[in-house]
Each structure stands twice: as structure tokens, then as C-alpha cells.
């Protein structure tokens, strides 16, 4: 197991290098002048341009630019934005917010998604089952920004239960967290339901009944444990997606998170900002995936890594 983890960690190195290179190249290779519009209405002064050109090695070939940039990155030097703020400060400010948002989304997926799936699966064809099937279908087919706006209007404005936009508190992240998690929540509910229904028909569940186990134990111990395995691993893998995929939700609720930072970075051609933010995302994503694989093995004894 230990060797497996080390091997997986080593495999991450080329993946990180590859992805960051692609991102770096794409951001800087975008057509157009990187200094367009950076200095108000006027063209930027030549002194500024030459300073920035030197800072980012813009004269060098792309590969060299990238290499020099990565060397800086390895030393913890994330560079500055064109406006002169330290990128590392911005990352430190934004990542915690995005992580909080993702965690809230995951909690919703876990609690509501699994509960809805279990109730639906146990009463197949019943009212709750149909309700879950229809509502998850609706959620899956509606764009996130529509869900976000409706949630703002209904929960935030009409009912007044939760803040409409982000005000710096975790409390105001509950509604956006729900919106962010809604799509995966629907998947989790369906996945849970399908697994449960399938496992309820399995031979080992029939064995448990034949052993004279009480119905509660047959479902709660013998069926649930197996049904949860794919769901838990889905949710684990989803954490990575939620971190990077919160752009729309962050926009709707005015949350200064990572998604928002990357979006502005791309728009303003802040290559260093985008690359730094995405590099961290990629790293987190890879680590989460490793964690999920280990979790999978912990839940299902049939899986062993060497």
C-alpha cells in the first residue's frame, strides 16, 4: 500500500508539468496584445511594457518563459499580477472561500442525496420515488445559473431565510453551496437509488434474510454498506470538480473565489495568475483522486493495490 501511494505521487509530477505547460501556453498564446487595455484608455507607456516584458521573460521563446516561470513557482514565488498585487496573497484569500463552498456542497450531496436515494430505493414506485426521479431529472436538465437565480429569489428574497449574496460569512455560503451541489446531489440520489435497488435483489441480501436477520439489519448493514461504495467514491471525486467548477455559482452570489479569479485572469490575460491558480487546482484534484482510490479500497475489501 505504501509503495502504491509513493508510485501514485511520483506519477503526479509529469501530469502537473504537462497540465501547467498547456495552460501556460494557452493563456500566453492567446492572440492579441497582452497589454491592450491594461493602462486605461491610453496605450501603456513603453517603460511599463519593458518592465513587464522583463518580469515575465516575454522576449524569450515560450518554452523558456515557461521554464523560468516554473522555477519561480517551485521556489514559492507566484509572481505578481499586472496591477502589482502578489498572486500568492490572492490565492491565500480565495482558496479558503472556495474550499468552504465546496465542502458545504458536499455536505448537501451526502445528506440530502443519500437520504433521498435510500428512501426512493426502499419504496420503489412509490410517491417519494417518483418525486425523487422527477425532481432530479429537473435539476439535471436546468442550467446552474437558473437554479442559482431561482434559489436567490425564493430562499433569499421571498422567504428571507438566507443571505442573497456573499457577505464574508460561512452562513452566507449555505445557499450557494446548495446551488453548487445541486447537480451532483441529483446524481448522488439517483446513483444511491439504483445501487440500493440492485443490491436489495442480490444473493447476499437474500442470504441475510434467510439467516433470520431483522429487516432493519438486512437493509441497514448488509445492503447499505455495499450501496454506499460507488456513491462515496463519486462524491470524493466530485470535490475536485466543485473547486474548479464553481465559476458560475461564484458569479451569481458574488463570491470572491478561485473560479472567479481564473475567469478574470483569462479575460484579462493574466497568465501568471491563471497558471498559478490552475496548478493548485490540478494538484488538489490529483491528491483527492488518490484519496478516493484509497477510500475505495478501504470500503471494498476486494480491491487491493500493490
Amino acid at each position: 500500500m505504501g509503495r502504491y501511494v509513493i508510485r501514485r505521487l511520483l506519477q503526479m509530477i509529469p501530469v502537473v508539468i504537462g497540465t501547467t505547460f498547456i495552460i501556460y501556453t494557452m493563456v500566453w498564446a492567446l492572440p492579441g496584445d497582452p497589454f491592450a487595455g491594461k493602462c486605461g484608455d491610453r496605450a501603456c507607456p513603453p517603460a511599463y511594457i519593458s518592465m513587464m516584458t522583463a518580469e515575465y521573460n516575454l522576449d524569450e521563446p515560450l518554452l523558456v518563459q515557461y521554464g523560468l516561470y516554473m522555477v519561480d513557482l517551485m521556489q514559492g514565488n507566484f509572481g505578481e499580477t499586472f496591477r502589482g498585487t502578489e498572486i500568492v496573497n490572492e490565492l491565500l484569500q480565495r482558496y479558503p472561500t472556495t474550499v468552504q463552498l465546496a465542502v458545504i456542497a458536499i455536505v448537501f450531496e451526502l445528506v440530502i442525496g443519500i437520504a433521498a436515494g435510500v428512501v426512493a430505493g426502499l419504496r420503489r414506485g412509490g410517491f417519494i420515488d417518483n418525486l425523487v426521479l422527477v425532481s432530479t431529472l429537473v435539476v439535471v436538465s436546468i442550467p446552474v445559473f437558473v437554479i442559482g437565480l431561482v434559489a436567490q429569489i425564493v430562499v433569499g428574497v421571498q422567504l428571507g431565510w438566507l443571505p442573497v449574496t456573499y457577505d464574508g460569512t460561512v452562513y452566507s455560503l449555505i445557499l450557494p453551496g446548495f446551488v453548487l451541489g445541486s447537480l451532483s446531489l441529483a446524481y448522488v440520489a439517483r446513483l444511491m437509488r439504483t445501487n440500493l435497488v440492485e443490491n436489495l435483489r442480490s444473493d447476499y441480501v437474500r442470504t441475510a434474510t434467510a439467516k433470520g436477520m431483522p429487516q432493519k439489519r438486512v437493509i441497514g448493514v448488509h445492503t447499505l454498506r455495499n450501496s454506499l461504495i460507488p456513491v462515496v467514491t463519486f462524491i470524493g471525486a466530485d470535490f475536485g470538480n466543485l473547486l474548479g467548477g464553481a465559476i458560475v455559482t461564484e458569479g451569481i452570489f458574488n463570491i470572491p473565489g478561485v473560479g472567479n479569479m481564473i475567469f478574470r485572469g483569462i479575460r484579462d490575460r493574466e497568465g501568471a495568475t491563471v497558471t498559478a491558480a490552475v496548478t493548485i487546482l490540478v494538484l488538489v484534484f490529483l491528491l483527492v483522486n488518490l484519496f478516493v482510490d484509497l477510500l475505495y479500497a478501504a470500503l471494498d475489501p476486494r480491491i487491493r493495490y500493490e
Binding site: 442480490s202 444473493d203 437474500r206 434467510a210 448488509h222 475489501p301
Partner: peptide, 15 residues
């Protein structure tokens, strides 16, 4: 009590 044909699928894989 009962014994089933396929012991692999009749035993719970995770316990």
C-alpha cells in the same frame, strides 16, 4: 436454514 448454489455471490463481499 438454507445453503445456496453460488457461495461467492451469496456471501456479503464486504464483511
Amino acid at each position: 436454514a438454507m445453503i445456496f448454489q453460488d457461495a461467492l455471490s451469496s456471501l456479503n463481499p464486504v464483511f
